[in-house]
C-alpha cells in the first residue's frame, strides 16, 4: 500500500534490486550431514578415523596390517572410498572385517552424505550396532578431501617415503586439518632422499598439534606406536561413553 495517499496500487520497485545478507557456509549441507554422522557414531560407541593421502601412500596396506595386529577384542569396520573399483574393499574383506566400498564415479573426495549412506550399508550388510574403530579410507588425493568434514573424530594424513618430504609445505591444508601425520614406507629410507627430520619440522610448523609417527607396515618398524595410538583412542572413547 502507498504510504502517501493510502491507495492499493503496488509500489513500483520491481526493477530495484535487493540485497540479502546470507552469511551461510557453502559447506552447510555437508557440515549438517557430518554432525548427523557424528551422533550416529557416538551412538555406536565408535572412534572414526579419516585417512587422507596421495594415491599409493599405503593407506590400504596400513589398514591390512592394523587389522591383523590390533587386539582381536577391538571391533573394526572400514569404509573404502575410491573413484572406481571394489579392489580395496576386496583386500580388506579377506581380513574378515566389515567393509563397504564407496565408488565416487569421478569425484575427487568423499563427502558426509556418502559416509552416511556407507554407514547404513555397513550396518545393514553386517548386522552391526556397535564398532570400536571405523576407518574411512578417503579417495587418494591430498587436496580436496581436506575440505570435507565427514563426522570423523580423528584425521590422519599419510606421506610415504618415495613421495618426498615436501608434502606438508606443498599441501598445508591437509596437515592443518589433521590430528596425526604418518610417514609410511620407512623401510625405503635407504633408497630415497627423504630427510625425516625436515618433513617432521615442516609439518609441525604448519600444525604444531600433530602427532607424528614413522612406520613401515612391511617390516613392522614403528608400527607399535600407531597401534598404541589407536588403543588409546578406543580406551578414551570407552571411558567417555561409560561416564555418560
Amino acid at each position: 500500500m502507498c504510504d502517501a495517499c493510502g491507495c492499493d496500487l503496488p509500489i513500483e520497485n520491481s526493477t530495484d534490486s535487493k540485497i540479502i545478507e546470507v552469511h551461510q557456509s557453502l559447506l552447510k549441507a555437508n557440515t549438517e550431514m557430518a554432525d548427523l554422522n557424528r551422533s550416529h557414531f557416538r551412538a555406536m560407541g565408535t572412534v572414526v578415523i579419516n585417512l587422507i593421502s596421495s594415491p599409493g601412500s599405503g593407506k590400504t596396506t596400513l589398514l591390512e596390517h592394523t587389522i591383523e595386529q590390533l587386539d582381536p577384542a577391538i571391533k573394526i569396520g572400514v569404509i573404502e572410498g575410491d573413484i572406481e573399483t571394489e579392489r580395496d574393499a576386496d583386500r580388506i574383506r579377506t581380513k574378515g572385517v566389515p567393509v563397504v566400498q564407496i565408488t565416487t564415479g569421478g569425484a575427487c573426495h568423499l563427502d558426509a552424505a556418502q559416509i552416511h549412506k556407507g554407514l547404513h550399508r555397513l550396518q545393514h550388510e553386517y548386522d552391526i550396532n556397535s564398532l570400536d574403530l571405523l576407518f574411512i579410507e578417503n579417495v587418494g588425493n591430498l587436496v580436496c578431501p581436506a575440505t570435507f568434514d565427514l563426522g570423523e573424530d580423528i584425521r590422519v594424513v599419510l606421506v610415504s617415503v618415495p613421495e618426498g618430504p615436501d608434502k606438508p609445505a606443498k599441501y598445508p591444508r591437509a596437515f592443518l586439518g589433521s590430528h596425526a601425520f604418518i610417514i609410511s614406507k620407512t623401510d625405503l629410507l635407504p633408497y630415497f632422499d627423504f630427510p625425516v627430520a625436515e618433513a617432521r619440522r615442516e609439518a609441525l610448523e604448519i600444525n604444531p598439534k600433530l602427532e607424528v609417527m614413522e612406520l613401515s607396515a612391511t617390516t613392522g618398524d614403528g608400527f607399535e606406536q600407531w597401534l598404541s595410538y589407536l588403543r588409546q583412542l578406543v580406551q578414551h572413547q570407552k571411558t567417555t561413553n561409560g561416564e555418560k
Binding site: 520491481s14 535487493k18 540485497i19 540479502i20 545478507e21 546470507v22 552469511h23 557456509s25 559447506l27 586439518g177
Partner: peptide, 20 residues
C-alpha cells in the same frame, strides 16, 4: 618460535546476494 596456529581462516561463506 615456529609454532604458530591459525585462528580460523578456513571460512567458505556466501556473505550476501543482490537480486531482483
Amino acid at each position: 618460535a615456529p609454532h604458530l596456529y591459525p585462528d580460523g581462516g578456513d571460512q567458505l561463506i556466501l556473505s550476501r546476494i543482490e537480486m531482483e
